[in-house]
């Protein structure tokens, strides 16, 4: 039993390697922040494209739906490997895209951001869609009857209401995104888990993993509590809302 604690909770190992693991975790956070912002934007674009009306946009809608389906269904690791493995060799692209090192970040960082944005854009498009579909049809009818175009109705009436309905599921996606940034370690970005592996192979001890895990918990646990709080608050709002309608 003592071995168990030594393997997983060796505080000397944790203490000695704290700075390295923290450095790694900061890389996770940096991938997370940029990928989260980009995925939130990309997801909204996908969701809005999916809602475009009329026969004219049918092909575009079809492509969007196919994109969302495929990227939701494929392991993220494959996407990461597809990008990092072959983007550097696509000669028709400028070098700054093949081997991106923008803002002083190494190319594995950007490959990871790209892959996570592509995949999480698809996840988030679905969350936006749920929000958009939760806005009553009458809202669109009212906006359109006042002469607004589809785009104006979306921008001024539907989307502002849709985003107030989805903070909880969106936060869940963000929690998953943060955890999935560890996958970028596979292409040699020195993030927390990769650092942990190096420490493990050096010390034959897994305590650094536990340390990395705790760092994730520090961020994700409050997020999870916030989700619960938002769901509860939202439920309250719905009850109050229906009460008003009845009254």
């Amino acid at each position: 039993m003592n071995e168990f604690f030594n393997q997983y909770f060796d505080f000397t190992v944790m203490f000695d390697h704290f700075d390295e693991v923290l450095d790694g975790f900061l890389k996770n956070l940096m991938v997370f922040v940029v990928a989260a912002v980009l995925a939130l934007i990309w997801g909204l674009i996908l969701a809005l494209t999916r809602q475009l009306p009329g026969k004219k946009f049918m092909p575009l809608r079809g492509v969007t739906i196919a994109y969302i389906d495929v990227f939701r269904a494929v392991p993220i690791l494959i996407v990461i490997l597809l990008i990092s493995g072959s983007l550097p060799f696509l000669d028709f692209l400028p070098k700054s895209i093949r081997i991106p090192q923008w803002f002083g970040q190494p190319d594995p960082y950007w490959y990871g951001v790209m892959a996570l944005t592509l995949v999480y854009g698809a996840y988030m498009a679905e969350v936006y869609r749920a929000g958009i579909e939760a806005v009553p049809e009458g809202q669109v009818e009212a906006a359109r009857s006042l002469g607004m175009s589809h785009g104006q109705a979306m921008r001024h009436v539907v989307v502002p209401q849709a985003v107030t309905k989805i903070p909880a599921p969106m936060l869940n996606e963000l929690i998953s995104l943060l955890k999935d940034t560890t996958l970028v370690g596979v292409i040699a970005l020195g993030e927390a888990v990769l650092i942990g592996r190096e420490i493990q192979s050096e010390t034959f001890n897994s305590s650094a993993y536990i340390l990395a895990g705790v760092m994730f918990l520090v961020i994700t646990l409050p997020m999870a509590r916030l989700v619960d709080y938002l769901i509860k608050r939202n439920r309250g709002k719905i009850t109050r809302g229906s009460h008003i309608e009845v009254a």
């Binding site: 009306p53 809202q139 009818e141 009212a142 359109r144 009857s145 009436v157």
Partner: peptide, 28 residues
């Protein structure tokens, strides 16, 4: 026509106002 293109939506919606049973005010 093809979908909305054949309807003179702008002409109609600028001349015809409608009020609904469920109000449909913009809650935000």
């Amino acid at each position: 026509g093809t979908g909305e293109q054949s309807w003179e939506l702008d002409f109609v919606r600028q001349r015809v106002g409608i009020v609904f049973q469920q109000f449909n005010l913009f809650p935000h």
